[in-house]
């Protein structure tokens, strides 16, 4: 790299003014132009700050309400969820707090209820919009089988491959969000849910509702992925701490049965 290049961080998000006595201490910090500590504290909600960080503007009241309602819905996937299960595995063994969250992020990053599923769902919203025929074509098209760090999707993103009917919390979340003035896609989703579920051959999942909500809020798919990851962490953290307190003797260890029918055959010398 060029020796002349200034080692600075370019950012449209964050500006800091230094204290007079220390260039490494901020006197004021501005997020997209808003004075965070001097003006936003006590006036802005947590979701205002989230929206501002990713969109660069303060949300309208409707947008802030939409994001807050969604954040409550996503906050705890519950201990049956794989990402929370992973966090509890950290908690029960006395692992570090960060490792519990890293475990939840790693497992909750994927294509089954995770961040990647929301990203793919949001790409579908960008491609199909509120055109039912476009959605039908999209849902009828198998996922491209291109080798990637991500496995090939095994179900339509945003739908529950193990579901029978639309789960009540999914319906309740969709209903709670669809009444928001900023929720055009969510309203369309609520109105067309059954047709989409028929096309997907699976019921709508909470990740599908989240994808629509993030799209309604104007987030990019990449921002939606990040928010899905972050907003599901509170429950993972709380359950990890709970299991740490309860101890491993009360945490399922499950049974394992060794299926050794072909393990010997799998060993080949000098492949």
């Amino acid at each position: 790299m060029s020796a002349e290049r200034a080692e600075t961080i370019r950012t449209r998000i964050w500006r800091e003014d230094a204290e007079a006595d220390n260039p490494f201490a901020a006197k004021a910090a501005y997020c997209h132009g808003y004075d965070v500590y001097g003006e936003m504290l006590g006036r802005a909600r947590w979701v205002d700050m989230l929206y501002l960080l990713f969109r660069g503007e303060a949300p309208t009241a409707a947008q802030a309400d939409l994001l807050e309602t969604l954040a409550v819905a996503l906050a705890n996937p519950g201990p049956r969820d794989a990402s929370v299960h992973a966090a509890m595995c950290g908690g029960v063994g006395g692992s570090t707090a960060a490792s519990c969250l890293m475990a939840a992020l790693a497992v909750g990053a994927g294509q089954l209820a995770g961040g990647r599923e929301v990203l793919l769902g949001m790409r579908a919203w960008a491609a199909c919009g509120t055109n039912l025929d476009a959605w039908r074509r999209h849902l009828a098209t198998p996922a491209a089988d291109i080798a990637s760090i991500w496995p090939t999707p095994e179900h339509p993103p945003g739908f529950d491959p193990h579901g029978v009917g639309t789960a009540t919390p999914v319906r309740q979340t969709l209903a709670a969000l669809a009444g928001n003035a900023a929720a055009a896609r969510l309203r369309w989703l609520a109105a067309n849910r059954e047709a989409l579920e028929a096309a997907a051959d699976a019921p709508l999942a909470l990740s599908g509702v989240a994808a629509a909500a993030f799209a309604d809020l104007g987030f990019s798919p990449e921002a939606g992925e990040m928010l899905q990851l972050m907003l599901r962490l509170p429950g993972a953290a709380a359950h990890a701490l709970e299991q740490k307190e309860l101890g491993y003797k009360q945490f399922p260890f499950f049974a394992i049965e060794l299926d050794d029918a072909d393990t010997g055959a799998a060993v080949k010398e000098g492949a």
Binding site: E7, T8, I9, T11, R12, R15, A26, D35, E39
Partner: peptide, 15 residues
């Protein structure tokens, strides 16, 4: 340092 952030966003504005 604070000066190492090369800010390219909007000017300070009221919340």
């Amino acid at each position: 340092s604070c000066a190492d952030l090369s800010y390219e966003g909007p000017a300070p504005r009221a919340w």
